[in-house]
Design a protein around this nucleic acid. Sequence first.
DNA 1: AATGAATGAGCCTTCATTCAT
DNA 2: TATGAATGAAGGCTCATTCAT
Lengths: 223, 223, 223, 223
Amino acid sequence: MPSRARTERRGGQTFIEAARRDQIVAGAIAVLAEEGYGGASFARIARRVGISPGLISYHFANKEDLVGAVVAQVTEALEAAIADRTGAASDHHAALRAMVEAQVEFFAAHPSEVNALGTIRNNARDTATGAKAALAHRAAATARLERFFRDGQAAGDFAPGDARLLAVTTIGALEAVPLELATRPETDPAHYGRELATLLARTAGAGAGGVPNGVGFHGGHDA
Amino acid sequence: MPSRARTERRGGQTFIEAARRDQIVAGAIAVLAEEGYGGASFARIARRVGISPGLISYHFANKEDLVGAVVAQVTEALEAAIADRTGAASDHHAALRAMVEAQVEFFAAHPSEVNALGTIRNNARDTATGAKAALAHRAAATARLERFFRDGQAAGDFAPGDARLLAVTTIGALEAVPLELATRPETDPAHYGRELATLLARTAGAGAGGVPNGVGFHGGHDA
Amino acid sequence: MPSRARTERRGGQTFIEAARRDQIVAGAIAVLAEEGYGGASFARIARRVGISPGLISYHFANKEDLVGAVVAQVTEALEAAIADRTGAASDHHAALRAMVEAQVEFFAAHPSEVNALGTIRNNARDTATGAKAALAHRAAATARLERFFRDGQAAGDFAPGDARLLAVTTIGALEAVPLELATRPETDPAHYGRELATLLARTAGAGAGGVPNGVGFHGGHDA
Amino acid sequence: MPSRARTERRGGQTFIEAARRDQIVAGAIAVLAEEGYGGASFARIARRVGISPGLISYHFANKEDLVGAVVAQVTEALEAAIADRTGAASDHHAALRAMVEAQVEFFAAHPSEVNALGTIRNNARDTATGAKAALAHRAAATARLERFFRDGQAAGDFAPGDARLLAVTTIGALEAVPLELATRPETDPAHYGRELATLLARTAGAGAGGVPNGVGFHGGHDA
DNA sequence: AATGAATGAGCCTTCATTCAT
DNA sequence: TATGAATGAAGGCTCATTCAT
């Protein structure tokens, strides 16, 4: 029985279909990162991938659809990277550190993806569902972080204060990282992540039994 | 020789020339804020201002040129607002607070300008000189802030630490504010600014003889 | 040697080949009727039939070819329906009535087919051989009708006059029917056909010994 | 004072704007007539007119808009031609004759316009308002004709009968004319018109005191 | 100083068609 | 026999920009 591999499917898609989609998404990410939102035309993406522009329309219903796929892929990868690291955290300080470090390292490891996501987010008006997903992802991340800080404050791990403000500030601090890494390539991301984690821990403040400037000392967690 | 008024100049420009340029820049800001970078076409800007699209090309060499004018106007206004408030600051903590509060209040008072500036910055690849100015402004602001923090640490007003990291983090925290204000219109900007200032002061840390949460009182340093 | 059935042929075609062609023609008719000429793309036809677009190209050399098949099928069915009814007619008046009634009833019974045929005729320029067949069919029908009227006039069944004018007018009157039936669905087609036959008989006029409104009874002429 | 002519306006349009629009509409009519609906692309129209395709978009909001302009121009011209001739008619028979003759002569004098209108009508699905206007025009003409026949029957000028059927049949007979004239260029339109008028008068039938083949002479009815 | 007419490139998308499988 | 991947041309439309006036 021939050509089995070609007909096997994953999620209703042929292998080759899935491969093309991935390839196109990758091309879109690269072009978005390099040329910006306005420069990410089907023609440019197709040229980079080495296919005809019509083929993108064949695999994606819309530009929106393609942009949505980019957003989905990048946010999922980012979420996974964070989840991987925060899963083991035993307290709020450890979790915050894990999240910050994971995020910074992801930024360093996937600069184009992160850049593309940011580019899309900043041009969200254009596309309806596609790019709004990027904004929604950010909003969800902020809300999650707010809950996390409130939780930590209730648990006495963080100093009392406006958890929303803390979340927004933390998100902002993190979002400034990719440009900094790009601007100063000599920066060691791992080190930067650890330092930023420490700094943001100080920002969140120590709870009743903690120490503001650094590290708690109960657990044995680090990043 | 009549029409003297029309020929009087400031900076090499006729009055009416300057007025038109301002009018067009204002229109560009509004459209950038409302329609995003991709939506800010000459046609759309001209329609809003009530002129013909060709006139924009008459007054600005390029789209770049127009974008550059927007960046210049907004960054200058922002700088002025900051300078106004930080001028009176008597020490680093006061100066930091003044800077943060001034910036947040500027964000609240001029949402379109800030939005437009952000939009341009996020699409900086497109336009050569025009939009890169926005990035350059940010880079300069970061560098200045880094110097400020280093200064403050040397003076013992801030805790020792990586001043660059502190600067980038502070910038990031500030840049997250406009979206937060837009997303939650019920937020009181003045209050948000004070809280954020307090928070960022804690982030910078208290120096040897200072108070973390408040205002120091020794130095006479500038922003 | 199995699969004999699959290789049996009619007119040089496999059974399954013939079946597919019919299926595709039927799909094309439906799509033409519903979406118009411009909307009748291979993709749309294929989707309706439940096959891949490439298969249409496999079974038909061209879009022209497909359009030609549609024209052939519909005109043949129409001719057959007319022949069925006019075969028994004993004179020119009866034959005219039979033809008109048969045609109107065919219009009512096969609205999509008729619509598709009309759509093709009205876009005949596009496709070379395919759609010109529709025009040719109309021309042939007109010529036949002209001969019929001339015949009837010679036989004294119709009033003397320009047989060509009569034919063109009759064709026109018939071609207005499908839209009328579609626009006013409450119309009873059988009744409409009888009334129209009577009216057109009056238009053709009564011959020397005939009755204008009704049926003559001499000839043995065909349609 | 210079360039007066250029700034004078008619209906809010510059002269040159109006001239261009007319020129484009004329080009669209020619291309529609020659290449059919599917062939009437902006590129093709522009090439014929000798302008760039973008200029069509500059003068017309849409393809729909352009198509609508074509429909408006042709239907208005046709209506005017009919009104010119039927205005003087003193009774229903005279009015019917005038209408038929005027229409046939218009068909002969403006073959492309008529062809274009027909082409648009037959592809009405594609375009929303633009082409539906052509269908609406036909529906209105039919309704008006129906009223006319009913009127004439009430006045005793036409034989009793289904006025709707009569109207639809008359419209159909008229719509068959352009193709006949195109197919047989040797046809004399004036003669054809007179003959068709006579034929359709016979179709409508003579009223109580009238003469079937000719002209009534009593009434003062309108068209 | 200002208009509005005009261009040509580029946008996303759909199309008929081809071809390896 | 049938699929689905792929192409290249063409579609309408918007854009920044130019230029005569």
